[in-house]
């Protein structure tokens, strides 16, 4: 994303966001409540339209991007229940949609991917159970398995550990470690890193809709003060215009 801006109902929320995530990176988006970290993830996935700036995914401008099977999204959610009972397996199976064509039944590869996703999050034994009978932490793992089933290269997770106890956070962290080792790119929104702290390659701290820090991981006490040591003045630098496409996205093998 370059010079990205997001306005909600006319109010500018995010301003001047320049962020590029390289392939295979594990990035944590951090910051206080209302700092814009969730809005940023929603803008990165295209759920929030940009008021200004440009977004490209895998080097393709957002408007031309159709390769959604490479992107996995785990929304911020209290639970996974809806008006009609749904089994864990069915929810995870809906993550396979990006690979399925209309009116085609699930193939053997699809079933294998669903079974593996359930295995990774450790819920294979609950596959047939209704999702509403699961605990909050387990439901969060179901949502992660759903994103996993699509076998994406790039994951966006919006506060997967919110309201989840420590043992479940540990299982989440182990899952993300497995993914990261397989070469997946992970962008994680988190209030607190907890057991995921050792996995992070890079921390981005948001403050009031702008990036206040972007660099190596911080201890959580430093997050609150990260904006203090970088006192930025707004310099009116002449904007660089060239005709080469500006790539602000993961490129395979760039690392």
């Amino acid at each position: 994303m370059s010079n990205g801006a997001v306005a909600i109902a006319g109010r500018p929320i995010l301003r001047g966001i320049d962020l590029s995530v390289r392939s295979g990176e594990f990035v944590a988006l951090m910051g206080a409540n209302g700092s814009g970290k969730s809005t940023l993830v929603r803008a990165l996935t295209g759920l929030r339209p940009l008021a200004g700036g440009a977004l490209s995914l895998f080097g393709t401008p957002y408007d031309d991007f159709h390769d959604w099977q490479r992107v996995g999204f785990v929304p911020q959610r209290g639970g996974a229940a809806s008006g009609v009972p749904a089994s864990v397996w069915e929810i995870v199976a809906s993550g396979r949609l990006t690979h399925r064509r209309l009116l085609r039944p699930l193939g053997r590869r699809d079933r294998a991917a669903i079974a593996e996703a359930l295995d990774v999050v450790g819920l294979a034994h609950r596959a047939r159970d209704g999702v509403s009978t699961l605990s909050g932490g387990q439901q969060q793992r179901v949502l992660i398995a759903r994103a996993l089933a699509g076998e994406p290269d790039l994951f966006f997770l919006d506060e997967p550990t919110a309201g989840v106890d420590l043992p479940n956070q540990q299982i989440l962290a182990d899952t993300l470690e497995t993914l990261s080792e397989r070469g997946a790119t992970i962008v994680l929104v988190a209030h607190e890193l907890g057991p995921m702290a050792p996995l992070i390659d890079r921390a981005v701290v948001m403050r009031d809709g702008r990036i206040a820090y972007d660099g190596p991981p911080l201890a959580s006490a430093e997050v609150a003060t990260a904006h203090l040591d970088g006192h930025h003045h707004h310099h009116h630098e002449p904007e660089r215009h060239d005709h080469a496409p500006h790539v602000a996205s993961p490129i395979d093998g760039a690392r």
Binding site: T45, W68, G72, A80, L102
Partner: peptide, 22 residues
């Protein structure tokens, strides 16, 4: 019945379905 995977996903979680390209 034919579009049940798509209709299910959209009704279950709109945001996820949209990021899945539906």
């Amino acid at each position: 019945v034919g579009l049940s995977p798509q209709l299910f996903a959209v009704a279950q979680d709109q945001e996820f379905a949209r990021v899945a390209g539906l």
